[in-house]
Design a protein around this nucleic acid. Structure first.
Lengths: 192, 192
DNA sequence: CGCGACGTTGATTTGCCTCAACGATTGTGG
DNA sequence: CCACAATCGTTGAGGCAAATCAACGTCGCG
């Protein structure tokens, strides 16, 4: 089995055991997409109708305010899902951009396909419940840190938590993730 | 039916239809707890072993940094769940306090009971999946606002989004939710 | 080769914080 | 039912973390 879908099946299996035939049902709903560095999976204004599981590569989601400043919402690498969850869930235009930071391969499922899949295999609700729960825990950790820690400590924690990411993404995006300017991150790094 | 459990059953039913007997199964796992203003549902350091659905009242979760400063993570009112999700999920000591801001009534389910309930009624995974998904959408909205909007606009958006909360909670907690000091919120309100 | 993307450095500005003082309100015990 | 203490909100002076703006060096790539 040299199948790209093995990876997502594996990931789901960690949380919810799957029979061979259930695996085939899932795969029936999936498509794949290759996306080159600097290309966009989603752009602001368009409806985001697919969830994306990253088989290979690295992407970011961010939004742009009225002054043109970018704010990085998250990075996502192998075995993470990325989408504009609000647009995907509530059928509203996306407020985000999702961009590949490396040549990447993603596994896609449309909103409609996901609805059908969840009817076919209700046990997958559990998978998403667990995934989402982790996301919430992470979000609160980030909110907490942004409020209570100075930028330098947030940066150190980022390095500790995502050591591999520092090598893969430009510094100014890390600054944006931390909620500071690239200039200030540079100064922080310089002074120690 | 003058039952306090009606409220949670109703809330679940919005997301997942329930038969009469399924309702009884759920209720079998629940307990209730009255909690007076200023009392704590959870304190830092203890394991948080229950999820709480608020039938009546208003609570907050917050944590305290090493300097003794408080940071408000969220408010929760009727029909919302509140817990330290990390402590509850991963069986680690809580880093938060959860405190009643009014005399309140909450419906409790322990981690063990929830595990059993989800085995008995797997369809409830869907309920939590939907609840959690909304939480994530809200979290990103908050993260986004904290990064890109000045305090005054965050305050205005808070007023717009939670008009009833302003009447129910002290201003210094709103300031904490917004990530600013009460003094600064006061100055913002004064100047316009 | 030359241009654009990226990172750094410095001077200046600013949004928000800290600390301190002071009313107003609430609540509580004598 | 009053006195006193907390709790809460406000105001002002001064300080600091981080932003802004601008300039400049470097690298990778078309």
């Amino acid at each position: 089995m040299e199948n790209i879908f093995d990876q997502i099946i594996q990931h789901i299996s960690i949380h919810v055991p799957l029979t061979e035939s259930e695996q085939q049902v899932i795969i029936g709903y999936l498509t794949t997409r290759r996306i080159k560095k600097r290309q966009f999976l989603v752009s602001e204004g368009e409806h985001c109708r697919t969830e994306h599981f990253i088989a290979k590569g690295c992407l970011r989601s961010y939004y742009v305010d009225e002054k043109g400043k970018e704010y990085l919402l998250r990075f996502a690498t192998e075995n993470y899902w990325i989408t504009d969850l609000n647009s995907f869930t509530n059928n509203v235009p996306s407020t985000q951009f999702i961009e590949a930071l490396e040549d990447s391969e993603v596994i896609c499922i449309t909103r409609q396909a996901l609805d059908c899949l969840l009817i076919d295999l209700p046990k997958l609700h559990k998978y998403f419940m667990l995934i989402y729960r982790n996301a919430i825990i992470n979000n609160y950790d980030r909110i907490q840190q942004n409020f209570s820690l100075p930028a330098l400590e947030r940066y150190r924690n980022f390095q500790k938590k995502y050591p591999q990411l520092e090598q893969r993404v430009p510094r100014y995006m890390i600054a944006s993730y931390l909620g500071i300017t690239p200039e200030f991150l540079s100064k922080l790094s310089a002074q120690k």
